[in-house]
Simulated assay, not measured.
Amino acid sequence: MTSQELRFSLAERTPQGIKSTGDSGESVSIQDEKKVKSILDTIHNTKVEDHHGKTDWILLGYSGPDLKSLKLLGHGSGGLSELRSQPFPEDSVAYALLRVVDKIDDVMTTRFNYITWVGEKVNAVMNARIGVKKTAVTRVIGHYSVETLVSNKSELSDENILGRVQDASGSRSKVKEYKPPSKPQSTSPGGTDSTVFSYVPKGQGDQLRVQDDQAARDVIKSVRHGTGGLNWAMLTYSSPSCLVLSAKGTRGLSEVRSALRDNEPAYVFLSMDQTVDSTTMRRFIYIRWIPDGLPNLKKGKLTPHRGFVEDWLAPYHLNINAVNSEDISDKAVSEKLDVLKG
């Protein structure tokens, strides 16, 4: 695999047909389908050396309140600053895909940030339906490196959007122990040796917490260091606004699959070893488990929690959005990790 082929870490999904059905059976269609598909192909397939001057972002929104059809709101080659200048709807939802160039071990590579915009004036009914439609929309968007949830223009800052790409890139030798910063810090452009940002979607920070926060963080720290053979830990909901560290173990991915429930969302932090050029590397994986069997209304209520959980568990090399055990089979996870080898 060449350095240019290392374009995405597998939270990513390969592009599917432009009409896509979500896990709930609901689907979305695309207005001006050929044009949208062409733009997405350009964003995904432009090589790093051809990045400048080529289309690097697209913005899609719903054509009506029924959320059945997406339309093109804009596209361009001016990067994040141009995307940020677009008229994002305050009372609706929009989806953007942004291609950026990142520097990983002194090699330039293309990365993709999948941005979900939930306007601050979105009503409760629409907010609940976002999660129902999300899988279908994600299949339209195609593969991506990181996903970011935002609700206002201030959250479309370079620090938030580009910084998240750099944080997710990681490297074999520069994965840091997570220490919550007292305030947001800057990231050097193009580097991966960066501080993790504390990002919580506006209005959500006081609605979700982790019970016995420091004790739970200590368990995650033990997973990072392999203390006592510990290699995974799981957060589940003790109430709609509180997470609890409910399980941990030493037997890896198979034990994680046994601990997950078909009717209960969970967030897993997993450590796995990977051999790269005869050297064993420790990889950290974040699994967001939102099972198929979960009621659609409950799925929708979980969407605003994504930013909080991502940052609480950061940093990690790989993000997997799983809806069934096949998404986290040994083979599936191994294939995802292989992309990180470079």
Rank of each mutant, 00 (worst) to 15 (best):
M1G: 10
E5H: 08
L6Y: 13
F8S: 09
S9H: 13
E12I: 13
R13Y: 05
P15N: 06
I18N: 10
K19P: 07
S20R: 10
T21S: 13
K34F: 07
I39P: 02
L40Q: 00
D41N: 08
I43L: 03
N45Q: 04
Y62D: 01
S63H: 04
G64V: 07
K68M: 08
H75V: 00
H75D: 13
H75M: 09
S77F: 01
S81H: 15
Q86N: 10
E90W: 06
Y95G: 01
A96E: 00
N113E: 08
N113I: 13
E120D: 15
N123H: 12
A124T: 14
N127K: 15
A128Q: 15
G131T: 01
K134R: 13
T138M: 11
I141T: 05
Y144E: 01
Y144R: 06
V146Y: 05
L149G: 12
V150A: 14
K153D: 05
K153T: 15
S157V: 12
D158A: 11
L162Y: 09
G163M: 09
R172V: 06
K183P: 03
S194F: 14
F197C: 14
G203R: 01
G203M: 01
Q204N: 07
Q207Y: 05
R209H: 04
Q214R: 10
V219A: 03
K221E: 06
L230N: 05
L230H: 06
W232E: 09
W232Y: 13
M234Q: 12
T236Y: 02
S238W: 05
L243K: 01
S246C: 00
R251H: 12
V256R: 13
A259W: 00
R261T: 15
P265Y: 00
T280K: 11
Y286T: 12
I287G: 04
W289F: 01
I290Y: 03
D292V: 15
G293L: 05
G293T: 14
P295N: 08
P295A: 08
P304I: 03
P304W: 07
V309D: 07
E310V: 09
W312M: 10
N319Y: 07
I320D: 01
V323C: 10
D330T: 01
A332T: 04
K336F: 11
V339A: 08
